[in-house]
Every structure is written in C-alpha cells, then in structure tokens.
C-alpha cells in the first residue's frame, strides 16, 4: 500500500469519512512492521483499539429457572383440563345404586310387568263384554 494512499485515508479517518473497509486497510497497515516514521504516532491508537477488542465477559450469566414461567402454563392447562373432565363426568355419570336399590328397581319392573299383563287380560275380557252389548241390543229389538 502506497504511503500517499495511507495518508489520504488517515485524513479521511479523522474526519469520520472512512468506510469499514478503509479502516480495515488502515488497521492492517498500522499493525504491519513497516510504518513510516512520521505516522508512527498513530500506531498506538490502532493498537489500542485492537487490544480493546480482545476484552471479554468471563462471568456466567444467571437467568431465572425456566420452569417458573413455562411449566406454570402447563400446570394451568392441566388443571383446567382436569376440572373440565370432572365436570363433564359429573353430569354424565350413571347413578350408582346400592344392592337394595337395585333389588327395589327389579321388583318395581316385575310388578309393572305383572300389572301390564293384568291390564292386558282385563282389556281382553272387556272386549268380550262387547257381546253383551250386542246381546242387549238384540234383546231390545225383540222385546221392544
């Protein structure tokens, strides 16, 4: 790199008018062994910036435990699901019965069946009675 070009870049540098690429050119020039004597005063500046770039953060970054936020959401979802299932189940459950109640229901069914049969037979009997009505009518015709 010709000296004139470096001097020109340096001037632009102090005016804040260099691009990153041009600044990289300056940095590599000043980090080289062949810096012109009258430019050596700038060497320290570029060396210092390069040195500053090597500093690093060595401490560990402490963040709050993750489950505090994420798992709380899942616990919430799980809890509301549980409640939903519970409510659904409560309204849909078959009433559970004790043995006695079952027996009572069975007895009730049997009784109802018996009553049904009885009423059926009774109705049949009642139909037969229709003939009595016929008989009555005929009797009236004849006897007047």
């Amino acid at each position: 790199m010709e000296l004139a070009k470096i001097e020109q870049l340096l001037e632009a540098y102090f005016e804040g008018n260099t691009t990153l690429q041009e600044e990289a050119t300056l940095r590599s020039y000043f980090s080289s062994a062949e810096v012109a004597p009258h430019l050596q005063q700038y060497q320290l500046m570029f060396a210092s910036f390069a040195k500053a770039q090597t500093e690093s953060f060595t401490r560990d970054i402490v963040l709050p435990k993750e489950h505090k936020t994420t798992s709380r959401l899942w616990i919430g979802i799980a809890a509301s699901l549980l409640v939903a299932v519970g409510v659904f189940g409560f309204f849909n459950q078959e009433p559970s019965l004790t043995a006695e109640e079952k027996e009572a229901i069975a007895a009730f069914e049997k009784t109802r069946e018996a009553f049904k049969m009885m009423s059926q037979n009774f109705n049949e009997g009642a139909e037969e009675l229709a003939y009595i009505q016929n008989f009555k009518e005929t009797k009236n015709k004849i006897l007047k």
Binding site: Y13, F14, E15, G16, N17, Q41, Y42, M45
Partner: peptide, 9 residues
C-alpha cells in the same frame, strides 16, 4: 466520531 478521534490524537 471525528471529534473523538481527533481528541485522542
């Protein structure tokens, strides 16, 4: 930036 660089110089 220009001011800062000049001051350092």
């Amino acid at each position: 930036l220009s001011r800062a660089r000049k001051t350092v110089r």
